[in-house]
Simulated assay, not measured.
Amino acid sequence: MKIDILGVQAFVAIADFGGFQKAAETLHITQTAVTQRLRNLEDFLGVMLIERTTRSIALTSIGEDFLPQARRLLQELSSTLSEIRETGKAQRGDVALACVPTVGIQYLPQVIQAYTARFPDNRIKILDHASSRVAEAVQRREAEFGISLAGSMHPDLVSVPLLEDQFVLVCRDDHPLAKRRSLTWTQIQPYPLIFSGDVNGNRALLDSYLGDKSADLNLQFQYDVQRSATAVGLVASGIAAAIVPRLAILKGSYPRLRIITLKEPTISRQLVLITRKAGHLSPAAQALYDMIRTGR
């Protein structure tokens, strides 16, 4: 059913101000427009709401019964619109975002803290997924935006660069390589390694960077795990060294861990912010998106 708000507004104004001219002045329209709006409402309802003479107007019995309901309808609509408007201005609301787990370990927490300080009433839902699932969550509207690895995107999605995350070797302080500040990939060949692999796309990324060089390398991937956090935990237990993105290591969480730069080549993964191409972020989500993009 189409609700004739303009007609209801005209009817209430005529009743409240006692005539068409005063109603027109209040609504900032012509008297002819007020008359037409009332006529349209009466035609839609199939009843007369106001009796007109050349000198006066009077509400019909149906008009008298309808007037308090009409006033309440306009008041509720006005209150609802004002609330939405103020919510937008204040950037209030719940936010859902998807991200690869390593972002949630080190990069995201400081931004979330700053966001919560500015918008303490906003709730944040974080979906930590593998890279492919991040894009899927945004596409399916499970999340308003996402943080994932750069790569081919669905045509409905768009991405912007966020940061570079370098792959490093992490080992415990009693490991033979613990005192090294940097190593080449060739130099780590003799040592058992933990790798957090295919679920996050890291293996394919490393293979693409190493290229033909990988044929000459014989890296000892003795342990294969799903997530980088698991690899770091195993390293801290003294199982072996691991190749992980730098963001996977939370500073101070494992005091005995040592981070060693890998070079020749230096390999990084590009993290990107993902949104729907035709979508519009809610004010609350836009505020968080902007803070993540600027890092503050």
Rank of each mutant, 00 (worst) to 15 (best):
V168D: 07
G46P: 07
V134C: 13
R118T: 01
R180G: 08
V272M: 10
L262D: 05
L73Q: 11
R71K: 15
S148W: 06
A215W: 06
L149M: 12
Y223K: 01
I260W: 02
L6A: 03
V12S: 06
Q9H: 02
R293Y: 02
Q187K: 12
E136H: 09
S159L: 07
A10T: 00
T261F: 01
I3Y: 06
Q75H: 05
T87M: 12
T87P: 03
E25R: 09
N200P: 08
L217W: 02
S196Y: 06
I126Y: 05
I188C: 08
V138P: 06
S228V: 03
A248H: 10
T54R: 14
E142F: 09
M291S: 01
I292T: 00
I260L: 00
W185G: 10
S159Q: 15
Q75L: 14
G252D: 11
V225D: 07
R276A: 08
R227A: 04
P120E: 08
T261D: 14
A15H: 04
L273Y: 07
P155N: 07
L77W: 07
A231Q: 12
I14W: 06
R181P: 01
P155L: 09
P155W: 05
T30Y: 01
V8L: 05
E64M: 13
Q31W: 01
P245L: 11
G63E: 03
V103L: 15
L262E: 04
H280L: 02
Y115K: 08
E136Y: 07
K213V: 12
G151M: 10
L288G: 00
L163G: 07
E25L: 05
D121R: 14
H28A: 13
T184H: 02
A33W: 05
V12D: 05
R85H: 13
Y289C: 02
Q21S: 14
Y289A: 01
G104A: 12
Y254L: 04
H280N: 07
G46W: 03
F167Q: 10
T275A: 08
L108V: 12
E144P: 03
Q226C: 00
R276C: 03
D16Q: 15
L127F: 06
R92F: 05
A231V: 00
A58N: 05
G252M: 09
R55W: 05
A240V: 14
N40D: 09
A10R: 06
Q21D: 12
A96V: 14
S253N: 13
G18P: 10
V199P: 03
L177M: 15
M48G: 08
R92Y: 05
L262Q: 00
L27G: 02
Y223A: 00
